[in-house]
Simulated scan of single mutants.
Amino acid sequence: MNGIITHPAKVTKVTGATVEVKILAESACASCRVRNKCGMGESREKLLVVETPEAPFFEEGEAVEVHTDQVMGLKAVFFAYMLPFLLVLTALLILLQTGSREVVAGTVSLCILGIYYLVLYLFRSKLSKEIVFKIKKLNT
């Protein structure tokens, strides 16, 4: 891997400085080593909003390529999957070790998971500034 994750996409909407694209999961995803971690394996299409000053130069229906650094992809996997797993597991183990009943420990752990995803949702604008996608036109 060259450190860049790319996906072919199609522009669905252009608004101001943003371009909304539909990422198309194609056969290239089958050979990708991180396909199960990025979530592209679960469905055929994903919508993504890319902020770019070049937005007015894109047109609806245009074929484009969306890319990001591999580090950004790993950061997204960490926040979406690894950190919540570690939070639930840690809470569960601590509660069980302190003598809580299994039902209570499980319920509290799931509540912590819900709170984590709520906080993640509330800070989505800050996270969207950290995990940056870029877009470029395909030469057809």
Rank of each mutant, 00 (worst) to 15 (best):
K136W: 06
E45T: 09
K134A: 07
A25Y: 00
T140S: 11
V108E: 02
E62D: 10
V11P: 01
V103Y: 05
V21S: 01
K37R: 07
E42I: 13
E51A: 10
A17K: 11
V77W: 07
T107V: 14
G16T: 06
Y116G: 05
S27K: 14
H67W: 15
T140P: 09
V104D: 04
K13Q: 11
L86R: 07
E51I: 09
T140K: 14
A105L: 02
Y121V: 03
V132M: 06
C111H: 01
N36C: 06
F123P: 04
L127K: 02
T68K: 13
A80S: 15
C32Q: 00
G73M: 08
R44I: 13
T68A: 15
I115Q: 06
N139D: 05
A55M: 07
R101M: 03
G3L: 08
A17S: 14
V77D: 00
V108L: 14
T52W: 04
L118M: 10
I5M: 08
F133Q: 00
S109M: 04
T12E: 12
L113A: 12
I115A: 15
V34S: 11
I131A: 02
K46P: 03
T15R: 10
L120F: 15
I5G: 01
T90D: 05
L89Y: 15
F123T: 13
E54G: 04
F85C: 11
L48I: 09
M72Y: 13
L95G: 03
A25P: 04
E42W: 05
Y81L: 13
A9I: 14
M82F: 15
F133S: 04
L24M: 12
C38R: 02
G73T: 09
L83F: 15
T15S: 10
K126I: 12
A80L: 12
C32G: 02
L74A: 12
I5Q: 00
N2K: 14
Y116S: 03
M1H: 09
L110K: 01
E62V: 09
T107P: 00
N2Y: 07
V50Q: 00
I135L: 13
S43H: 10
V50P: 00
L110D: 08
L113H: 03
C32K: 03
V104R: 05
G61P: 02
F85L: 14
C32I: 00
L110M: 13
T68W: 13
R33I: 05
V66W: 05
Q70V: 10
I115N: 06
V11I: 06
R44T: 12
S128N: 14
I115S: 09
L24Q: 08
G73Q: 06
F85T: 13
K126Y: 07
Y117Q: 09
A17V: 07
L87M: 10
T107G: 11
L118K: 07
R33V: 05
D69I: 11
E54P: 03
K136C: 02
M40V: 06
A28T: 07
V103P: 01
E51S: 12
H7D: 00
P53H: 10
C29K: 00
L83M: 13
V88C: 10
K75T: 15
L48G: 02
Y116K: 04
G99K: 06
E102F: 10
L110V: 06
V103I: 12
G106T: 03
F57W: 11
R124D: 08
V64K: 00
V77Q: 01
I4N: 04
N139T: 09
L110W: 04
K134L: 10
S125F: 07
V108K: 02
K46I: 08
V88G: 05
A25L: 05
